[in-house]
Computed example of a mutant assay.
Amino acid sequence: MARIAGVNIPTNKRVTIALRYIYGIGATKAQTICDKLSIPGERRVNELSDDEIVKIRELIDNDYRVEGDLRREVAMNIKRLMDLGCYRGLRHRRGLPVHGQRTHTNARTRKGKAVAIAGKKKAAR
């Protein structure tokens, strides 16, 4: 199992797919990394030589912000917004959608499970 940027990437997957297991590397960046190092996309991780794995590791460490550094930066950006007290920061603080989505219905992912209002009864006829 190859270890890159502190993540064990799966050995039986193609290189471009396996690199996506690293936080901060998606499809485009994975393809770019393979192109820079002239590694064919069809190759599997277990077919890579140790030298190629070292090259991938060095390229990611030098050119990309991934894993812990990226997570820390994102968390600091959110914390900065919350400390400023701007609208986006308030939405983060309250756990509500930040980008203008409706909340009258939907938004269950951010708001959590719907809670029934206690004491509400149907109108008597």
Rank of each mutant, 00 (worst) to 15 (best):
M1S: 15
M1A: 15
M1V: 15
A2Y: 01
A2H: 03
R3G: 08
R3T: 13
I4T: 01
I4V: 09
I4N: 02
A5R: 01
A5C: 11
A5M: 02
V7W: 10
P10C: 14
T11Y: 15
N12P: 13
K13R: 12
V15Q: 01
T16D: 10
I17G: 04
I17K: 05
I17V: 12
A18W: 04
L19R: 03
R20Q: 11
R20C: 08
I22Q: 02
I22A: 01
Y23R: 11
Y23K: 13
G24Y: 08
I25R: 00
I25P: 04
G26L: 06
A27K: 13
T28C: 09
K29P: 04
I33L: 06
I33E: 01
I33Q: 00
C34D: 00
C34G: 03
C34F: 00
D35S: 06
D35N: 12
D35C: 04
K36H: 07
S38F: 12
S38P: 14
S38W: 04
I39P: 03
P40Y: 00
E42P: 00
R43I: 02
S49N: 08
D50H: 08
D50P: 03
D51T: 15
D51N: 13
E52A: 09
E52T: 06
V54Q: 13
V54I: 14
I56L: 01
I56Q: 01
E58L: 05
L59A: 01
I60W: 00
D61V: 01
D61E: 13
N62W: 06
D63S: 00
D63K: 00
Y64N: 03
Y64M: 04
Y64A: 03
E67T: 11
E67Y: 09
G68E: 15
L70F: 04
L70S: 03
R71D: 04
R71G: 04
R72F: 10
R72G: 02
E73A: 10
V74Q: 06
V74H: 05
V74N: 10
M76G: 08
M76T: 06
N77V: 07
N77T: 08
I78H: 06
I78E: 08
K79H: 11
K79R: 14
K79L: 14
K79I: 11
K79W: 09
R80I: 11
D83G: 05
D83A: 11
D83H: 07
L84A: 12
L84E: 12
G85M: 09
G85D: 10
G89I: 01
G89R: 04
G89P: 10
H92K: 08
R93V: 03
R93M: 07
R94C: 06
G95Q: 02
G95V: 06
L96K: 09
L96M: 12
G100D: 10
G100C: 09
G100I: 07
R102P: 05
T103L: 15
N106K: 14
R108P: 01
R108I: 05
R108G: 06
R108D: 10
T109W: 05
T109D: 13
R110E: 12
R110C: 05
R110S: 10
R110G: 00
G112F: 07
G112W: 02
A114D: 09
A114K: 13
V115A: 05
A116H: 10
I117Y: 13
I117K: 14
A118F: 11
G119D: 05
G119W: 07
G119Y: 05
G119C: 09
K120R: 11
K121C: 08
K121N: 12
K122L: 13
K122C: 12
K122I: 13
A123K: 15
A124I: 14
